[in-house]
Structure formats: structure tokens, C-alpha cells
Simulated scan of single mutants.
Amino acid sequence: MRMSTWIRQHVAALRALLVLTAITGIVYPLVVFAVAQLPGLHDKAEGSLITVDGKTVGSSIIGQSFTDKDGNALVQYFQSRPSAAGDGYDPLSTAASNLGPESIVDTLDGDPANVKPSLLSTVCSRSKAVADREGVDGSRPFCTKDGVGAVLSVIGPRDADGEVSQPVQVVSVNEACPTTPFLNTYRGVKVECAKPGEDYSVGRIVPIYGDASTDTPVPTDAVTASGSGLDPHISPEYAAIQVARIAQARNISEDQVRALIDAHTDGRTLGFLGEPRINVVELNLELDSKYPFRS
């Protein structure tokens, strides 16, 4: 290859680099910035910030936890859905729990602080906590009355299909001793509590449906986190079971609370996408504005 051809190729490559750098590194960002300044888009581009009396109090697209320093729900506020982002709604730690439907067995340890609950037990415990707070029935299929997953390890010889033909030991794997198991017996064998640190995977893992209805007053969004951990919305069903508590805490009527819920309920996007939803941050701010809480 002659030197002049080599130079021409490198000069052409340099020109392409400079042109693409100008387009993608200067022109495109400037165009995006300019479009973001248009009326109706500026606030969204700035993070959809919410200000009260000139002070920024949050964002309409990022949820908040309405709890005290110990994580207990503040009775005067509507509660958000659970969050797996950091300590809750941390934009720098946006994430899901990464637990799936097969996560039904807790990891038990002698130290209660080291217990790692399964997704099933997490849902069960949240449902019980919401039910206790709102005065509704939080029982769910596959959950014990104490709010853990109702799961047994059935140990014994197996048949050709992998079923335990005759159990010799049955353990409630999510109930650590000395807890009394949620079932007395299973197929004629006394159910035992789980000894922390013991491995019961040798048995067949059997979730127990129980007699709870699938039509529970505690909706799904009250017991599961969103994929981002930042969702600021709850369902109208979750808001509805919180009405009585809010009304009592703020000394107002339930109809006044429901009127605010109706005003903050958004329908399906474009009329058919998603589900009706309520922005909890905006709803709680209007609660404080119209009906201040007095302890």
C-alpha cells in the first residue's frame, strides 16, 4: 500500500470520528436538552419534583416510605407498597428482591436476626401486618395464621414417581422450634417444628393450601414490591382498606377520605393499559394540606 493511500484512509477515518463526535456528543444532547425545555416537558425533565411552600418534598415518580425511624407505619398516612430498593425507595439502590414463586422455604438460623425469609413467608408476614394494622382479614392460601409460609418437608421412602409412600418424619420448615406447628399431624405423622440450622431438603417439600380464601381483602400490591422498588402508586383496593384508619387518625369522616382517593385515582393509560392507580405521595400531601394531623 502506498503511503498516500494510507494517509487518505486515516484522514477519512479522522473526519468520520470528528463528524460523529459532533453529532452524538454535541448536537444530539443539545437537541434533547432544548426539547426538554418545552412547556409540558420541562417539569418531567427536571425529575417531576414536588414542592410545598418553595421546598422540594419529593418526586411524583418516586415513592416514599411513610414510617417512623423504627420502620413502623405512621397511622395518619396512606401506606405505600413495599420496596426492595435499599432501605426502601432509595433511588440509588433501585432493584427488585429477585425472589421467584419457587422461593417457599426460609433459611432458619439460631439467631432470629439471621433468618432469611422466602418470598412466600415475606408475602404472608406482610399480609398479616397489613391486616393487623387495618383491621381486616389477612389470611391467604399457603400461609399460617402467624404469617409464615405453610410448608412441610415430608421425609420417608419414595415411590417411582418421587412421592413419599409412607412418611416417617414431617417438619414444618418455616416454623423454628419451639414454635407449635400450624398442623398437628400430616398423613398420620406428628408434625415437628424446624430445628434452626438443620437441612430438611431430603424430604419432599409440600406447600399446604389451607382453608383461606383467594379473595383476600389485602391486595397483591400491599404485599409485593415493584420491579424497580420505586413505584409511587397503590391500587384503589389497597387505599380503600386504609380509609377507616386515616379518618380516625385525622378526626375526619371516611367520606372525606374517599373523596380525596377518588380525586387522585388515575384510570388505565390510554383507557386500556395497566390498572387504575393512586399516587400515594401526592395523596398524602393533599391530606396534610386539607386535613392536618394533630397528635
Score class of each variant (00 low, 15 high):
144 T>P: 01
59 S>V: 06
221 D>Y: 00
68 D>L: 11
2 R>I: 07
184 N>C: 06
175 E>D: 00
84 A>R: 04
54 G>K: 09
141 P>R: 01
171 V>Q: 12
193 C>W: 14
116 K>R: 12
39 P>N: 11
208 I>S: 11
256 Q>K: 15
8 R>C: 10
215 D>M: 08
283 L>R: 10
38 L>I: 12
239 A>N: 02
122 T>A: 01
204 R>T: 09
215 D>L: 11
41 L>F: 02
52 V>D: 03
249 A>G: 08
231 D>H: 09
43 D>T: 10
29 P>W: 01
74 L>C: 04
77 Y>P: 01
26 I>K: 10
62 I>L: 14
40 G>E: 02
237 E>S: 09
35 V>T: 11
105 V>T: 02
281 V>F: 07
84 A>W: 02
230 L>K: 04
78 F>A: 04
152 L>N: 05
18 L>Q: 14
117 P>D: 04
171 V>N: 05
173 V>S: 01
19 V>A: 12
251 N>G: 07
136 V>K: 12
96 A>L: 13
145 K>R: 06
198 E>C: 06
43 D>M: 08
219 P>C: 05
46 E>Y: 08
181 P>F: 12
119 L>A: 03
254 E>G: 10
43 D>H: 13
260 L>N: 05
146 D>K: 10
273 L>G: 02
137 D>N: 13
228 S>E: 08
182 F>C: 04
75 V>S: 14
93 S>K: 14
90 D>A: 09
